[in-house]
Design a protein around this nucleic acid. Structure first.
Length: 500
RNA sequence: GGUACCAUGGCCGAGUGGCUAGGCAGAGGUCUGCAAAACCUCCUACAGCAGUUCGAAUCUGCUUGGUACCUCCA
């Protein structure tokens, strides 16, 4: 059994994963800012780390998976500033931050559910941890690494960099950063341009505000993750995940804050997923090229030729290594959709297959095929252990699909494989497809009733065919095809169906 | 400007020195009342130039093109 190796952004190397507490693993992943709808780009980290979570559990770790919800800060809904406190509008006309947060949190949870992402163990909110954040900021001030200015508090990067390595995660050189001539807001309060806010004084019109030792304000962006990760995972924990775009300044700053407060580097393994691009361009608000998940699932977007199901998107994402950029396109999604369908149909049949003792007559075994199947199955462990190479796992599965389908169609006698190999095939495919990759059958939900209805039509069609009444037979098949249900005649006279 | 990264067949993508991933599309075939599905076969690519090597998509250098981060960002 090979060991799990993960690429650590901190060391830029693949390292063998070893948890701090044997048998347990702590993982923190940066969650969404719930001031808007999630888009395709957001789907990637959640699906990536869902597989990480699932795989760690599969390995037997008791995992605490913490994923925050950022619901504090400068709040606005697209085109609608949340700064109406001094206006004369009625309460109900005003934008209520909590309402916004609730709306997008619900939508986000819905999307995660669609993707079959397991809920995290703890999903803390920034607003629920203001006290922890203030405490942490006070510790930073007392330690001499933060200073207050006009009701705001900033982290003193220059001082930190003198004692520690600021930039070790992102490969940044502190001297360069101190000299940057970029014009940014609020710079005049900072001692150095590289300093970042821990606490921001709230202007009068700002709705989100809390009392603090420095006056009314709201927490800076980076402090929430440090505070919540420390609270739920401890001073040092195993894995911290997020998008590559968070490497700097967000994660770099997290390291700095936590290192001062807890006297230890907070994270053992930093894991970052790459971006989803659209025509080679990062999908993001600032580029105005986002496809929202609701648009993706309904097909209601100028760039979409059709709707793509959540599982298609999940499969699409898993077909690429998480550290590569992934370019979105209709052709690519369409290819994913068809591939997934083929995989799932073979998988479903395999799981329904009854393996009996008669199947394993050693003299009939095709040794070469048997060995090939075993090799392909064993490689699944090897590949997933190699920094979660889901693309290779899927590639091997697609090599197994023809074997499965050939057994199904009796092109290959079931006796060609040892009974133990068949059992291994069935069991491993189940574990990988369902438990680790989290690919679920989408038709299963309304499946039962629909299945009943289809059975009636299949019976009718069988009868028609027995009478060589091709007109009726074709009518049933063609009309079902029009609404997107495909009937397939099997070799043994049976019929199966699938939804297009 | 600084710092990284990337460039693979029609499309999406694995891949890190020899053993031609995989998916989708395309071509041919098997099966079939027809169709679909399935199965079999074919399509052998690595931006350009130079170098290292017995041998490079894979290492080195240069060139070109692109991207990301440095500001909210998954």
């Amino acid at each position: 059994m090979s060991h799990l190796k993960v690429y650590n952004s901190l060391t830029r190397k693949k390292e063998i994963f070893k948890s701090i507490t044997p048998g347990h693993a702590g993982m923190y992943v940066c969650g969404p800012t719930v001031s808007g709808e999630s888009h395709l780009g957001h789907a990637r980290p959640y699906i990536t780390f869902d597989v990480v979570y699932r795989y760690l559990m599969h390995l037997g770790y008791k995992v605490r998976y913490v994923r925050n919800i950022t619901d504090a800060g400068h709040f606005e809904e697209e085109g609608r500033e949340a700064e109406d406190k001094i206006s004369k509008k009625a309460v109900l006309e005003k934008l209520e931050p909590m309402e916004l947060v609730q709306k997008y949190t619900n939508l986000y949870h819905w999307a995660m559910d669609q993707f079959n992402c397991l809920p995290p163990s703890i999903e803390p909110t920034a607003t629920g941890h203001i006290v922890e954040q203030i405490n942490m900021i006070e510790t930073l001030i007392n330690a001499g690494y933060a200073y207050e200015k006009k009701g705001s508090v900033y982290f003193d990067v220059k001082k930190y960099a003198a004692d520690y390595d600021y930039g070790k995660l992102s490969g940044r050189v502190i001297e360069d950063m101190l000299e940057t001539t970029r014009e940014l807001e609020g710079q005049e309060e900072k001692r150095n341009r590289a300093d970042f806010a821990l606490w921001k004084a709230a202007p009068a019109e700002h709705i989100m505000r809390w009392k603090s030792p420095w006056g009314e304000g709201f927490p800076g962006w980076h402090i929430e993750c440090s505070a919540m990760a420390t609270k739920y995972l401890g001073a040092q924990f195993d894995i911290h995940g997020g998008g590559m775009d968070l490497l700097f300044p967000h994660h770099e700053s997290e390291i700095a804050q936590s290192t001062i407060c807890n006297h230890i580097a907070p994270v053992r393994y930093w894991i970052h997923n790459n971006m989803i691009t659209l025509n080679g361009r990062k999908m993001g608000k600032s580029y105005n090229n986002v496809i929202r998940l609701t648009e993706l699932f309904t097909g209601d977007h100028p760039l979409l030729e059709k709707a793509y199901s959540p599982m298609t998107v999940r499969f699409f994402i898993l077909q690429t290594h998480y550290r590569s950029t992934l370019d979105f396109g209709n052709d690519a999604l369409l290819a994913a959709e068809k591939g997934l369908k083929r995989l799932q149909e073979a998988h479903e049949w395999l799981q329904k297959m009854r393996i009996t003792n008669d199947d394993g007559q050693p003299e009939n075994v095709n040794q070469e095929l048997d060995e090939k199947v075993i090799k392909l199955l064993n490689e699944l462990d090897e590949f997933i252990n190699d920094d979660f190479s889901t693309a290779k796992v899927l590639a091997n599965m697609f090599e197994l699909v023809p074997v499965i389908n050939s057994i199904k169609d009796k092109n290959i006698p079931v006796q060609s494989l040892h009974i133990t190999t068949l059992q291994m095939l069935q069991q491993k495919m189940k574990v990988y497809v369902e438990d680790i990759l989290g690919l679920k059958t989408e038709t299963l939900a309304e499946g039962e009733k629909l299945n009943g209805v289809l059975q009636v039509l299949i019976d009718l069609r069988k009868q028609a065919r027995e009478k060589k009444d091709w007109a009726t037979s074709d009518k049933i098949r063609n009309q079902l095809a029009e609404i997107g249900i495909l009937l397939k005649d099997e070799k043994n006279g049976e019929m199966s169906w699938s939804i297009e």
